[in-house]
């Protein structure tokens, strides 16, 4: 008898990672706090007037870059319903869409900031994106980190180097140590030391910081998150009009049925310069997030197959216009 080649497989022993449809670029048309909405439609109109020419530029640039000129560009807008709740979706969101339309802008997708922390509905069950990303943080090690001790952590904080040693005198230790500077790990001659608060806790309730949620938001737009191998919070169309309650709104709403996919190879955010410190913090966080290897490979293979060269490091796939 000839030898028989047996193969045996077990589903539970394999990793299955879903893939996500991808645009070339996801453009965030703005990020406003509740006080901006309180300021009324004029503030929104101003924002969209500033954004419109940049969106046109991005479209043109990608048309040049993509073979055949078929650039897939999707637009999105993030509503802050995490740090403060204001008005209702039914009152607020039509105002946003109208203001955008006045400048010929189409908002393809609308997302809730609170969904970057935690989202629960009948369709997707419960997803804690922020926890998911927190578990993927790999601290930037200062020189002489050899693995013999666990990484030095200040709970709830993340930095890009070594913090200043404590200068307060320890009890019965006599003289105080003179101040020593913190240091950035990858400094060029001089340090730019950044220390970011990821969250705080009052009693049992944890509040994620704005930069941390913004980092989650970037990862979601880059299509780099998976929950048990599934794509978390896929966009859904809204049926039956705007809900009267924020919790009735899906995490990511598809407003334009013809829109290119929500997630993209790269992202561009058009923001007011007052968001600069937030985005520095976001980049500090994102440069310490280890995205799943398999997911990175999926995205790289796909982009190569359509002749788009992607930056290897994920922070280099994110760009901004501060205006």
């Amino acid at each position: 008898m000839t030898p028989v080649h047996a193969t045996f497989g077990e589903v539970a022993a394999e990793r299955r990672i879903a893939s996500v449809p991808l645009s070339h670029v996801s453009v965030e048309l703005g990020h406003l706090y509740m006080e901006d909405y309180e300021a009324g439609p004029d503030r929104l109109r101003e924002q969209f007037a500033r954004v419109a020419p940049w969106l046109a530029t991005v479209r043109a640039l990608w048309r040049e870059r993509v073979p055949g000129g078929r650039a897939r560009v999707s637009t999105c807008f993030l509503v802050d319903d995490y740090f403060s709740r204001f008005s209702t979706p039914a009152e607020l969101l039509p105002m946003v869409l109208d203001a955008a339309a006045e400048h010929d802008l189409t908002i393809d997708y609308l997302a809730r900031e609170s969904a970057c922390a935690h989202f629960e509905d009948a369709r997707s069950g419960g997803v804690e994106l922020a926890r998911l990303v927190e578990d993927r943080l790999v601290d930037d090690p200062p020189p002489e980190t050899d693995g013999s001790r666990p990484p030095v952590k200040e709970t709830g904080w993340l930095c890009n180097g070594s913090r200043s040693p404590r200068t307060t005198p320890m009890q019965a230790m006599g003289k105080a140590r003179p101040w020593e500077p913190p240091a950035q790990n990858a400094k060029r001659a001089h340090s730019i030391f950044v220390d970011v608060e990821l969250w705080d806790e009052r009693g049992p309730r944890r509040t994620w910081s704005c930069p941390f949620l913004a980092a989650v938001w970037q990862l979601l737009r880059l299509g780099l998150l998976r929950s048990d191998g599934h794509v978390p919070l896929p966009p859904v169309a809204l049926d039956g009009g705007w809900p009267r309650d924020w919790d009735g709104l899906p995490a990511v709403v598809r407003l334009n049925p013809q829109a290119a996919p929500f997630s993209a190879y790269t992202t561009l955010s058009v923001l007011s310069p007052r968001f600069l410190p937030v985005e520095l913090a976001v980049r500090t966080i994102l440069s310490q997030v280890a995205v799943d290897d398999e997911v990175l490979r999926q995205v790289a293979t796909r982009s190569e197959s359509e002749g788009v060269r992607l930056e290897e490091e994920l922070v280099d796939r994110i760009s901004y216009v501060f205006i």
Partner: peptide, 28 residues
């Protein structure tokens, strides 16, 4: 060991369970 990551389990010929992989940074 990681939110949103499944533990891989194979049952034949012996139950073997493997955690998700985690990274530790080093410079030394």
């Amino acid at each position: 060991l990681m939110a949103g990551e499944t533990v891989r389990v194979s049952r034949r010929p012996i139950v073997h369970a493997l955690s998700p992989e985690r990274l530790t940074g080093v410079d030394c």
